[in-house]
Design a protein around this nucleic acid. Structure first.
Lengths: 149, 149
DNA sequence: GTAGATGCAAAACCTTTGCATTTTG
DNA sequence: CAAAATGCAAAGGTTTTGCATCTAC
């Protein structure tokens, strides 16, 4: 390999950052890696812990800023847990929602499917022009639903 | 009027509190009044301001506690704005959702309608047993949609 | 080389909590 | 009268901010 960087630890997140014309910095790479390593949703605090555990010397502020950037770019979504805490989930840049398992905490992507249409119809009835919606589904995932007593 | 209280400033909220066997205190009445006076959604901070403006000598803690009680009783719902802030809306104790106008901030109740079914179906596809869902719809209400340029 | 990102630590924020006092039922 | 709610103020945790320094482009 030549001295040209960018070919090394490149992932979808990093590519998206570069594509958006944002600077690809070491800390951002690290955060992207940590996010990618996460399975379900995670709080900022958890990511900060992860960073510490992974030996990444990243400041809390930087993590918040990176998460904020990712959210702006649509690479992660901010969501709110039933207990009132904020969390994030990595996500594909296509519109969809998350089904969060109340047992194991993992989140499964669910397609928007017929939802948009249903919403538009419901909105129309109420004289409402729907421009955006946010859905959070809670329940038991396949594993927990079966395993659960 | 006799000395029998309860007939005075009684509202739906107060009645529900009494019906639930919770104590009907002056501060709770005040908070109920403030909530009823609100049209759309409101944050705890706003209610606290309202209280101050209305000359109600209620402590912040009490407002948070009252709001919490109301939420537990299903008289108000906690919701999360796109900007990550928490808010509340007064609501009927039947399952439904809120359509929040991004222009005037008012919220319109929308029936759950076919949503539950759609969700159950979607969830089934993903092997997910849906036990709860939370939907927040954003857009323009009838007034703003028409008036809007 | 320059605009932008980082780190640190302090500040700001919102929400909860403890305890003596007051109120409700 | 006893149990529960209130108020105050301080604690708690989370997120943001300022500024000097460093890095990516």
């Amino acid at each position: 390999m030549t001295t040209r960087p960018g070919i090394e630890a490149t992932g979808p997140l990093i590519e998206a950052i570069a594509a958006a014309g944002e600077r690809v910095t070491l800390p951002r790479r690290a955060v992207a890696r940590l996010v990618a390593a996460r399975d379900g949703h995670f709080t900022a605090a958890q990511l900060i812990d992860d960073a510490g555990a992974a030996g990444e010397p990243i400041g809390r502020a930087t993590i918040f800023r990176a998460l904020d950037l990712f959210a702006t770019l649509g690479l992660v979504e901010r969501l709110d847990l039933p207990d009132g805490n904020h969390a994030f989930v990595a996500c594909e840049p296509v519109h969809h929602h998350h089904a969060i398992c109340t047992r194991c905490g993992r989140s499964t992507d669910i397609a928007d499917g017929a939802l948009s249409d249903v919403l538009t119809a419901i909105g129309r009835q109420a004289g409402f022009r729907v421009t955006a919606h946010r859905l959070e589904v809670f329940g038991l995932c396949a594993d927990c639903g079966v395993a659960g007593s």
